[in-house]
């Protein structure tokens, strides 16, 4: 007890002294990511420095949300926040480098909505494990008396209830995004790339058909062209189409949950998923680049990680015999 600092400011200084920054990996609009080291153990870390100096209202909401969510979530498939410290007016998050649905089920079980699921926010660690990251839009949910914004989630992954302006929603919005990512993995191209908020709805309806009143009670029936799933995904098995269909159900109440999706036959029927360590990895890593490149934050999070979007990995490639 006596050798441990008691004061908040001293604890912060102690934390800061544990790490040293080595080189810049990338820069985004509100943060810079550095490659760093835990001084004593030599463990490689990523340091995400959030610039707050010119925020008029102090600590900004996305920093508050990210720190709040990550301090609570401890799971092998959620990016690990080891430490946080502030220096002058910067906030520094020390992170390490799922199975996506496992990570999402864990978030929902902890009553946290991610609200920005897209391929760029899934990182692959050096051991092949998938890590869910970027909790800047995350918030807790479940309080029906409080409204939430419908202006969330990157457009291509935004659920129809959000596009219709719903202020009360659930984990179903994260599942919709996961359904889009699932389809993107098979197509190797974004599944529902709308060009505007209204165009997004049109894109969804032309791909999945216009929802009927029976499918989604409360929605008025509109006549429109309907293309069934299996015409586009000609090589997909029935399990794939069934799970994707359930993840992309129009009525959020009927959409499968993360826990439910994990129990789907797709994950148990043959072919079995490849073990993380056997998954193909990009040949060149960011750390090997001599020049730090200016890229979006999510793309430059760790020396040994690459975003799925850049190199789509089909999670079901069977392992080499």
């Amino acid at each position: 007890m006596s050798d441990r600092a008691l004061l908040g400011e001293e604890i912060n200084k102690e934390t800061e002294s544990l790490y040293k920054k080595e080189k810049k990996l990338g820069e985004g609009t509100y943060a810079v990511v550095y490659l760093g080291q835990h001084v004593k153990t030599g463990r490689t870390v990523a340091i995400k420095k959030i610039k707050l100096g010119n925020m008029r209202s102090g600590l900004d909401m996305s920093a508050v949300r990210e720190v709040k969510a990550l301090r609570e979530l401890q799971h092998p498939n959620v990016i690990e926040l080891i430490d946080v410290f502030s220096h002058k007016t910067n906030l520094n998050l020390i992170v390490i480098k799922d199975k996506s649905l496992v990570a999402l089920a864990h978030c929902h079980r902890s009553w946290i909505l991610h609200r920005d699921l897209k391929p760029n926010n899934f990182l692959i660690a050096s051991d092949g494990q998938l890590k869910l990251a970027d909790f800047g839009l995350a918030r807790d949910f479940g309080d029906i008396s409080r409204n939430m914004t419908s202006q969330t989630v990157t457009r291509w992954y935004r659920a129809p209830e959000l596009l219709f302006g719903a202020k009360n929603y659930t984990g179903a919005i994260d599942i919709w995004a996961m359904g889009c990512i699932f389809a993107e993995l098979l197509l190797r191209a974004p599944y529902l790339p709308g060009d505007s908020d209204m165009g997004q709805l049109t894109t969804i309806f032309s791909a999945l058909g216009t929802p009927t009143e029976a499918e989604w009670p409360g929605m008025t029936k509109l006549p429109d062209y309907c293309r069934p799933l299996n015409a586009l995904f000609s090589a997909a098995t029935q399990d794939v189409l069934d799970l994707m269909g359930q993840m992309l159900a129009f009525d959020p109440a009927k959409r499968i949950t993360a826990e439910g999706a994990l129990r789907h036959a797709y994950f148990t029927n043959s072919p079995r998923p490849t073990r993380p360590a056997k998954l193909p990895k990009p040949a060149r890593t960011i750390a090997e680049d001599s020049e730090p490149r200016k890229r979006p934050l999510d793309d430059a999070f760790d020396n040994a990680e690459a975003p799925i979007a850049k190199r789509p990995v089909d999670l079901r490639i069977s392992s080499p015999a």
């Binding site: 908040g8 912060n12 946080v84 502030s86």
Partner: peptide, 13 residues
Amino acid sequence: EFVVTQSLQFDLA
């Protein structure tokens, strides 16, 4: 704000 968040050890929930 900073001394408060530091003293809370960034546990905000």
